[in-house]
Design a protein around this nucleic acid. Structure first.
Lengths: 188, 188
DNA sequence: GACATTATGTACCGATCAGTACATATATAC
DNA sequence: GTATATATGTACTGATCGGTACATAATGTC
């Protein structure tokens, strides 16, 4: 099994799951969309659940890489980077095909907390939280844990609102609140 | 068709969809869970989609009634009521069987913005926003629209985090931020 | 060239999907 | 009572679900 084929499958499966949902995407549709035969898919992954878990791992990695690099590119100090995160959100929401967060959707379709898919989605959020927490610490926040939790709340809210939303610029709204919180928590 | 049977079906269908998801819940399972025969269900609703839409309408009404009454019970002034909303969230999250917001989950399973199910979920959020907006106006907020949008962000974020979350008390965290925003926006 | 690995298409499995036909109850109406 | 509307169980439809058997073709290494 050459790794490239496997990665190609994961990438295209991600797009399809993201676009249509997990239950709504059958393995036959997946074969049609990816151009990879069902037989081959089941050579790489024993079950649909295994494939979904691999897709979530892939998405976790690429999303966190993307946001960390984006933030580091546009802002140099940890404090500025915390704020820049919300600019990254705005950029994400504006992308064609944006359709909320894959992990929020996964946890919705697999609501049981003991489900491996749900657990893996929670792990993604935990890792993102740890990143924000580390930025808050580096920035010298008085209470980095609380600040990180608050910023994460705003981030999740912005994502949901961007997808379901009644308002024009949820990333901008979140950024405005975030800036207040950051300015209060981090002495200049 | 006596209305009671129909309402009973909607109520039980709500519980089942909420617990297992929309795609994961087949009409056969629904018949088993509700004790109402498939034939009868299809007398009341032409399609599964029609049933889902009715369930969402029911949930929209009962949820907004619940939160409005809860808030009016524990707080008397509009400003206090805005804050009390986050206590209501905490109460909701602590309920056994809490599993995020039905409308967030619906919009995840039906991501297409033109889908009637997605549109109806968005309508629920719009109505809730209008309620918060009216409270903010009554409270004399300097910019009630912005305040309402910010509070809604916190609310959505708290819901997602309560379901998927890494932190102990998302409603409390949201309340703390909300209080700051409200105090800044509403002169005493 | 030999040989194992990997990918492929086709065709299938039993189960479940949304939705229906039909005949039979059960209730309310007058 | 008779008529009408609603509820019921059973059994079915064609399509799709996740997953597999099997034989063939392409690919790699040596």
């Amino acid at each position: 099994m050459r790794p490239s084929k496997r990665d190609e499958l994961i990438q295209k499966a991600f797009e399809t799951f993201y676009k249509y949902g997990f239950h709504a995407t059958g393995m036959d549709l997946l074969a049609a969309e990816t151009g990879i035969s069902k037989t081959s898919m089941y050579k790489h992954f024993r079950t649909k659940e295994d494939l979904i878990l691999a897709v979530l791992r892939f998405r976790d990695e690429s999303f966190r890489n993307w946001i960390v690099r984006w933030v580091e590119e546009v802002a140099k100090t940890p404090k500025e980077q915390l704020i820049a995160m919300f600019d990254a959100l705005g950029e994400w929401f504006a992308q064609p095909g944006f359709s909320s967060c894959m992990f929020i959707k996964a946890s919705g379709e697999y609501p049981n907390v003991n489900d491996p898919i749900h657990a893996q989605s929670a792990e993604h959020k935990r890792l993102l939280f740890a990143y924000v927490q580390s930025l808050a610490k580096k920035a010298g926040a008085s209470d980095p844990d609380t600040l990180a939790r608050q910023l994460m709340l705003l981030k999740e809210g912005a994502i949901v609102t961007a997808h379901l939303g009644h308002c024009a610029d949820p990333a901008g709204d979140a950024k405005e609140v975030a800036r207040k919180l950051i300015d209060q928590a981090i002495p200049d």
